[in-house]
Design a protein around this nucleic acid. Sequence first.
DNA 1: TGCTGTTATTTTGGATCCAAAAATAGGTTT
DNA 2: AAACCTATTTTTGGATCCAAAATAACAGCA
Lengths: 229, 229
Amino acid sequence: MGSASNVAVTSLRKLISDGYWKPGEKLREVQVAEILGVSRTPIRLAFRTLEQEGLLEKTGKQGFVVREFSADDVLCGVEIRGVLEGLAARRLAERGLSARDQEALQQCLDDSETLFEKESLVEEDISRWADINSRFHAVIVNGSGSRTIADAIARNNHLPFASSDSIIIDAAHLQKEFRKLHLAHQQHQMVYQALVMGEGTRAEMLMREHAYIGLRYGRLFGLPDALQD
Amino acid sequence: MGSASNVAVTSLRKLISDGYWKPGEKLREVQVAEILGVSRTPIRLAFRTLEQEGLLEKTGKQGFVVREFSADDVLCGVEIRGVLEGLAARRLAERGLSARDQEALQQCLDDSETLFEKESLVEEDISRWADINSRFHAVIVNGSGSRTIADAIARNNHLPFASSDSIIIDAAHLQKEFRKLHLAHQQHQMVYQALVMGEGTRAEMLMREHAYIGLRYGRLFGLPDALQD
DNA sequence: TGCTGTTATTTTGGATCCAAAAATAGGTTT
DNA sequence: AAACCTATTTTTGGATCCAAAATAACAGCA
C-alpha cells in the first residue's frame, strides 16, 4: 500500500469524480481528513496535486472548491487528447514501429476482431473492450518515445471525461452500443495501417478523429445532443 | 506578498531553472527550507506542485530530484505548445474574433511593425518584442474561450523551454537575430489574416509552424545544429 | 579484498500545536 | 430594512514534534 498522501490523492479523485461534493462546493480540510481517517497534512498535500490536475481550484477567497466543467470543457478535453495522441502517433509512424510495438498493436486488433465476430455484445465484453482499447492507446502514447508527451497526455487524462479509458457504455442498450464500439475498432485498424506504413500525417489525423468517439458516450456530462451521434 | 508556500513555488522554480541543482540531483527538504528561510511544510507543498509541473520527479528511492531534459524533450515541449496553441487558434477563428480581440492583435502587429521599420535592433528592442509577442499569444490562448485549453497550455509553459516567452536572443549578434524576429513577426501577420478571415484550419496550421521558431533560439538547451536554422 | 549483516544517522511522512487570516454572527446606527 | 462596525468562531498556513523508513557507515567474515 502506498503512503497516506498518495492514498489521499487517489481516494479524493474518486470521491470528487463520484460527485461527493457538488461543483463549486468548498472542501474543508478537517472534514476531508476525517472522511479519509488521516490528519490534515496529507490532505493539504493532496489538494495541491488535485489543483494542478485541474479537479480543484482556488477560490478568490479561501480554500479549494471542486472545479465546475461545462459541456464545452468536455469537448475541449477530448480535443486536447486528440491533438496530443495525434502528435504521439505521428512521431511513432515517423520513427518507425519496433517489432514489439507492432505485435502488441496487432494483438489488440486480433482480440477485438474476435470480439466483433458475434452480432452483439454481452455485458462482460465491455470490460474486454475497455482493456483492449486501453492497451492500444498505451502503445501509441509510449511509442512516441517522449516522456514529455506521455506526461502531457497523462495530465490531461486526469480530467475524468478526457481519458481514452472514460468511454462509458450504456449497458441497457448493448445492441446499439455494438455499432459504436465496432466503429472504434475500425478506426484502430486504420490507425494501425497508417502507422506500419510510416504515414505520420495520416496517423495523426486519424488519431485526432478517433478521439471524438469518446464524446458519443458523453451523455452523462450533459453534452448537447448534436454532439452525441 | 503571497503566502510562503506560493513564494516557495516561484522561488524554487527560479532556483531550479537557474541550475542551482544539477539535473538528477536530489533536493533535501531541510536544505531548501533553510535557503528560503521557511519551515519544511511549505517546501513539501511546493515539491508536489513542482512535481506536477514536471520540473521535479520522484526517484525510485526517496524524495524528489530535478528532472533531466533531453534535446528531444525540448523539441516535444515546443511541439506540444504548437498543437495546443493551434487548437486555440482554430477555435478562435471558427467562433469569430471579438472587436476587442481583433484590436488587441492589430495593436501587436502595429507595434512590431514600427519595431522592424529600422534596419537593425538595439538591445532594448528585445524586451519590447518579448512584450509584444507575449501579448499576441495571450490573446489567442484566451480567445479559445476555454479555460481547459488555457490551463493545458499554461501547464506546458511551466517547462522552461516550452513557453512562447522563452525565446532567448543572442544579444551579441543583434544583426543576425533581426532576420529571425522579423520572420516571427511575419508569421504573426499570417496568423492574424487567417483568424480574421475565419479560416480555422489554416490558423491552426500556421500556429503549429510558428511554434518551431522558438527552437531557433534553443542553443542553450543543447539542440542539434540541424534544428537550429 | 570483497561481500554481507548489523547498527547508526539521515531524511522523509504524518500528527499536533499555535498564530493569523477569514468567514460568520450579532448588534448598532442610520 | 439596509449598511456598517465589532466580536466570536471557524479555517487555514506554518512550525514543531515524533515515528518510521531509508540511506549510509561500519564491523565481521569468507
